[in-house]
Design a protein around this nucleic acid. Sequence first.
DNA 1: TTGCTCCTCACGTCACGTGAGGTGGC
DNA 2: TTGCTCCTCACGTCACGTGAGGTGGC
Lengths: 143, 143
Amino acid sequence: MSLRIGEVAARVGTTTRTIRYYEEIGLLPVEEDRAAGQHRLYDERDVDRLRDALRLKGLLGVSLDELGELLELEEAREARRTEFRDERTPAIRRREIARQGLFNVERQLELLRARRDEIEHLEAELEGRRARIREALGELGGG
Amino acid sequence: MSLRIGEVAARVGTTTRTIRYYEEIGLLPVEEDRAAGQHRLYDERDVDRLRDALRLKGLLGVSLDELGELLELEEAREARRTEFRDERTPAIRRREIARQGLFNVERQLELLRARRDEIEHLEAELEGRRARIREALGELGGG
DNA sequence: TTGCTCCTCACGTCACGTGAGGTGGC
DNA sequence: TTGCTCCTCACGTCACGTGAGGTGGC
């Protein structure tokens, strides 16, 4: 079940150019065995990862450099998950892995909360303004 | 109490280049009587407007074209406020002005709420992930 | 007079957009 | 074979960053 670049772009809501550009600057991995001129192929996991990345970028307003750091965290997370699920991994190591995961997720939550606070602050201001307008409308009477 | 461009930039948290660029593309008004090579001067209201504009741009992630539309709404708002406060303005006109103001403020609130929803959605996902990690840590035992 | 901030070009950069011309699988 | 999507240059654009060289007010 491999997807071509156009399908991926449509699913995550971006353009093929953006996906190629991200590959070009090293944000997305390059397939090693792809000959010049051949189609790029992706799977569902690539789609999920790209969607997450674009969502973070859009919501946090970070640069592609900063996005790269967040993606590296994600990649490290997947590697750790694999190690975590390996039955041979000892409990002490699993605990360490879980702690790192917890740290990362809390960092991302912090960034999101900071953003939400800003938005809520501005919302409160606008709601105050709205209340004053409504008051004025009430005094003026009429529907 | 007029401010120079550097002071304005510092107050709103941007650069002098950005302010000059916004003037260049028509986003900010040009002082008519400023001779070539002379300093740009601003007042507190300019600072407030620019701060609001940059905040909207940053939080909503809009282009400068779209930001321009929002600024025009703001400008229209100021004009209406002046008219509203004029004692000669009849009640029927005041009601219309208030309704337009209400419409604008609700549109901006809608944009902000949509953004906040997206952020909260992603937050919920991350909180779920965090809960699962904590659960795993609990099962593994140890502080 | 010495700093400091300001000024106007003007080229550079980041994150893509947009054709130009050509190739490959249902 | 005809469309369709894909490919690789490569130049364009948006929103500024960053000097280069010079001027003006405490």
